[in-house]
Design a protein around this nucleic acid. Structure first.
Lengths: 91, 91
DNA sequence: ATTCTAATTAGTTTTTTTTCTAAATAGAGT
DNA sequence: ACTCTATTTAGAAAAAAAACTAATTAGAAT
């Protein structure tokens, strides 16, 4: 069953943008921070919300923490929405 | 292009529940109101957010206003999320 | 052990969302 | 025209989310 925090996670434009950037592979908080005109703590809070949703997970490599998109959960979000809307996956 | 209000629309559990109930056909505000322990104005505000997202549209029939699920927009939400996550629709 | 870099936590303020009660509107039916 | 039912609008209060600065933690590297 889907963690409903996922709906909250995708509700904010910055978090959606982060997810989009993670499609192409893991990024550090610092790399992502460059893209947004927002304080680091605010961004950290967005990361935290993304982690709570399980849409992203982290891995530390030395000094850096890499954010990764969890595609399994991403697929679960899609499935849950298809169910919500009563839309069938074509066979 | 998707109305980003749709992300906001699905962020609240009551609004998701309303969408789910509309799968089976149009419902009046009154019918839906029975399902939730919340004041009518609060629910009306949820309806308004759903309408802003274009996920639902209304049709008046006499004294009743029927809420309908807009499946076209529902599909657009799914497409937008597939794009966001970089998930391909299988052919 | 100190220092450097990366990122988070603490605490607060601002903004947005959700909720409420009371009043108003829209249309149907008498 | 009045009245009844269904729903929304107005205005205010409460709750939740998002933002900031300052301080802290975690680990790497000297």
């Amino acid at each position: 069953m889907l963690n409903t925090n996922a709906y909250k996670a995708i509700a904010h434009p910055i978090r959606r943008d982060i997810l989009k950037r993670l499609r192409s592979g893991p990024k550090t908080a610092g790399e992502l921070a460059k893209e947004y005109d927002i304080s680091k703590p605010s961004l950290s809070s967005h990361f935290s919300i993304l982690k709570d949703s399980d849409l992203v997970f982290t891995r530390r490599d030395g000094n850096h923490i890499y954010y990764n998109l969890n595609l399994t959960v991403a697929n679960e979000v899609l499935s849950a929405l298809m169910d919500l809307f009563g839309i069938e996956k074509e066979t």
